[in-house]
């Protein structure tokens, strides 16, 4: 006999396994935005992000029979999300971008590309839009693990322990990843930070 789980989302998932479609609908409603935004911040393309979100929920839907509530449901869901994002990144479309980045990579500190000074080119854009564009480039230039840890911590407000569970590493590794990510971003965004 299965014991009652504390995680209400895991309970919903188990209800869905028993055939309750409403339970899955509740999961979908609760997590669709988070899954979509993780994918969007990682891939930086709205259409691709939505496609990834669809794919993630399809995987959850189709693998329901194999679901076992050994971990927190959200961690399991976000693990599927990050893996789907990584697979998408590895796909043909993104390989070209990655290889371009690699050629510009600095082996020493792990920072991949230099952000060009685009202030004159986009002089008519608002400062916020310009900064947002620079920020996206800076995040995109982070190594994949640092980028994922940053997105999960900053945008999903997950704890180091939850991130560690999702990324299958230790909390000290997450600490190290986020420390390096902050240092890299600080360097990339230095021109803007000096202005403020």
């Amino acid at each position: 006999m299965k014991g009652r789980t504390v995680d209400p989302d895991a309970e919903l998932m188990l209800e869905f396994v028993q055939g309750n479609l409403l339970a899955f609908e509740q999961i979908l409603k609760k997590y669709k935005s988070s899954v979509m935004n993780i994918a969007y911040h990682f891939i930086q393309d709205r259409a691709e992000a939505e496609d990834i979100a669809q794919e993630v929920f399809l995987k959850v839907h189709n693998s329901a029979n194999r679901y076992s509530p050994s971990a927190k449901f959200s961690s399991w869901l976000y693990k599927i999300t990050t893996n789907t994002c990584l697979n998408k990144l590895r796909s043909k479309k993104y390989l070209q971008i990655v290889s371009l980045n690699k050629s510009m990579q600095s082996a020493k500190n792990g920072i991949n590309i230099e952000i060009p000074d685009t202030s004159s080119r986009y002089s008519e854009e608002s400062e916020k839009n310009e900064l947002c564009r620079l920020l996206k480039k800076a995040i995109d230039s982070l190594p994949v693990n640092q980028r994922m840890a940053t997105i999960l911590q900053k945008y999903e407000e997950l704890s180091y322990r939850e991130i560690a569970e999702i990324m299958e590493c230790s909390t000290s590794a997450v600490d190290s990843l986020l420390h390096r990510a902050k240092q890299n971003l600080k360097r990339k965004l230095a021109p803007y930070l000096k202005k403020t």
Partner: peptide
């Protein structure tokens, strides 16, 4: 202060909304 500023800058990249027919598509 610099690290705090850097981390706060990330907040300007706002979350996006899903398309209305996301669930229907799913």
């Amino acid at each position: 202060m610099l690290l705090n500023q850097t981390w706060e800058v990330l907040e300007i990249w706002e979350k996006i909304e899903l398309s209305e027919n996301f669930e229907a598509k799913f």
